[in-house]
Nucleic acid binder design. Structure first.
Lengths: 184, 184
DNA sequence: CACAATTCAGTTGTGCACAATCAAAATGCG
DNA sequence: CGCATTTTGATTGTGCACAACTGAATTGTG
């Protein structure tokens, strides 16, 4: 079934040896790489698992919780605004917002000024959920085992990493643009 | 009717300062929490985007790449072994391995000893891909902008975080065990 | 041997991420 | 004004994560 015990150090060589890259060990690159990307992947999914447990009693998933946080903080927001703040596109947001609407937490409404825009409003139920959600951050913080300062440091580290990674993606994207002559 | 409270700051000015979040420490928790979990989420997806770009020329997705790394390092492995090393369950691995088999990179074969077990073998094509994959780790490392030491530190930090998070999940899991006698 | 429990892979269903595409509305330009 | 372009949201299709379940094979016990 799902993961049980099995330690993260499993097959991983502690590789507590020399700090520098030994020469002529190309295969080690593959192993080392696996450890790094695996660690990131594992942390991400472990975090997701914690949110899954904590948010279960609110009936929210983690991305749904992110959307609600934006709405609690800023009030009515168009879909585009949610996408910008959370870096999610409509392919993700559209069905997600429909599920939130089905749950009675939000209301979707076409803007009168710009008929293309869809405004997302909180319903009274959605507002009320905010009170129950206040306990969430503390429970998450407890689960991480990190103090306030460590959490801030982690956030700064991750933000810097994200910026570097996004830069790379952008660079590669313009390095190989798709031919505009594509006829549909 | 166009009753919508105009929100001049709406277009998303994160630099606008903390002016909005005036009252209540509790609300600060929600905002702060959004920043932390958002940072983790963003880093994870940014990393995924980089892998998507780098692995595109190999025709692999990131989880498929992880599976190939295990096979390159350890050779023929049962599905269960892949699941343990990568913390993935059969619901994820089964279709993934079928796609790798359809791409001609692996072969799935029932073990003769234990008919329940399915051994995953590398095909010659799968072996050959290893050479082209050797460049991947360096490109990823370049994209992160991290040095070797920083990468190791990040890995250690993430591993510690994962362990704490997994502990929490396990604790909560046993705290609320399965419901009443579910007959089947 | 019979029978229950366990192991292992697969399947189903729900939800998210992302690329590609489309339609409608707004906007810009001659 | 007429028409191309841009903006905005929705839709479609592929792939991954995970829970719950099925089913076959193995193992343990009497």
């Amino acid at each position: 079934m799902s993961h049980q015990e099995s330690r993260p150090t499993e097959a991983g060589r502690p590789a507590a040896g020399p700090g520098d890259v030994a020469p002529g060990v190309e295969d080690d690159f593959l192993v080392l790489d696996r450890q790094i990307c695996f660690s990131l992947n594992a942390a991400s999914r472990a975090f997701n698992g914690v949110y899954r447990v904590v948010l279960k009693e609110l009936g929210l998933t983690y991305p749904q919780y992110l959307v609600m946080l934006v709405l609690w903080e800023h009030g009515t927001t168009p879909v585009k605004g949610l996408g910008e703040r959370l870096r999610l596109d409509s392919g993700t947001l559209s069905p997600l917002l429909k599920r939130l609407e089905a749950a009675g937490l939000v209301r979707r409404e076409r803007s009168a000024e710009d008929e293309r825009s869809v405004q997302i409003h909180l319903t009274p139920d959605g507002e009320a959920l905010r009170d129950r959600a206040r306990r969430v951050p503390l429970r998450i913080a407890a689960a991480t085992g990190l103090g306030h300062q460590d959490a801030l440091a982690l956030r700064a580290l991750l933000d810097g990493l994200t910026e570097a990674l996004d830069d790379f993606t952008r660079t590669e994207a313009v390095a190989d643009p798709s031919p505009p002559g594509t006829v549909r």
